[in-house]
Amino acid sequence: MSLEWIVKIVSENWQMFLRGAGVTLYISLIGTVVGAIIGLIAGVIRTIPAPEHGVKKWFLLFVNFLLSVYIEFFRGTPMIVQAMVIYYGSALAFGVNIEVMAAALIVVSINTGAYMAEIVRGGIVSVDKGQFEAAQAIGMNHLQTMMNVVLPQVVRNILPATGNQFVINIKDTSVLNVISVSELYFLTKSVAGNNFRYFESFFVACVIYFVMTFAVTRILLYFERRLEGPDNYTMVRGEEMQPAK
């Protein structure tokens, strides 16, 4: 009977499952955060207004070209293949065997970065042009405009997409089992390999994946709501007419 098997598998292997879930969450979280940072940096670079001429113009064009190649390439190939290429390729190219965990973090981060770069660019373009001009008009340069005016709005706007990417990563890190990263799928496979109860073992993994993605979705929703801020403001009157904190 399956249910008994499930109880037995959980009670005997709960530490494995927990460890697998922890590794999966860890890689997904780091990958999403680093990916978002890569995306923000790429977005800022790709929206630098083109200088009229000179070396700067060509340098910027070149950097933008490299960024496009990166984005297109990582969006256009499966992560499972990227993992293999980066893990085995780094050994060939640099003669170093990077640790599987390092390879895993690198793959998920730069893969996420490629998607986030597009999302961030969309977010930057959606901030109304007037605010860019107002920032320029008070003498801000591109970086100051981005840091003080545009990115805070972009970060808020792309939060749902970033959360979505996090959820995708939780699920897609399972492909990292091809380079033997001890995430949830990989450890479940080894549990199932020991007891030959494939359905029951993977059913447990399935529930754990769902709990993780569901919890993450809810938590992010909560933060999105909070970021919207209060609907009201307080008027400042009389003697207390001081800048409020």
Binding site: D128, G130, Q131, E133, A134, A135, N148, V149, P152, Q153, R156
Partner: peptide, 8 residues
């Protein structure tokens, strides 16, 4: 169009 910074 005023163009205030909406995040501040």
């Amino acid at each position: 169009q005023f163009n205030l910074f909406t995040n501040h």
